[in-house]
């Protein structure tokens, strides 16, 4: 039983370790233009570039942690948000999070 528990814990740690993306190394450059990405893809659900709620939640002023956002972008949410873990690198995802944190209401 102890052996099985260990294996399950090991498996869980591997899965969680895979799921929770780590911040990318400091010098890497993202391969994406995040404002364009919102205009092509993310904005379908996160309306007005993520400034207001649409099909998905408002991202501007999100109280979610970086780790939460990173994991949600990678794994998605069944029936609500696609998983982008195989599309974006950790560096790309960091750039997306920086964009979200910098969002401000549009003027005018």
């Amino acid at each position: 039983m102890a052996c099985l528990t260990f294996v399950l814990l090991l498996l869980a740690s591997v899965i969680l370790g895979h799921a929770v993306a780590q911040p990318a190394t400091a010098n890497a450059k993202p391969s994406i233009d995040v404002p364009q990405l919102f205009a092509t893809t993310c904005g379908w659900c996160h309306s007005d570039g993520g400034r207001v709620a649409g099909k998905g939640p408002q991202l501007m002023d999100s109280q979610r942690s970086d780790d939460f956002l990173r994991t949600r972008i990678k794994l998605g949410k069944e029936g609500a948000m696609p998983a982008f873990g195989s599309t974006f690198s950790d560096t790309d995802i960091d750039a997306i999070i920086r964009y979200i944190r910098a969002l401000k209401p549009e003027q005018g």
Binding site: Q36, T41, G43, W44, G49
Partner: peptide, 20 residues
């Protein structure tokens, strides 16, 4: 939004605008 042409399947959609 003026975007770079998306000619290979990548991040799902290709909308070309922000809207609400």
């Amino acid at each position: 939004v003026k975007t770079t042409p998306v000619t290979e399947p990548a991040a799902q959609l290709n909308i070309g605008a922000n809207f609400k």
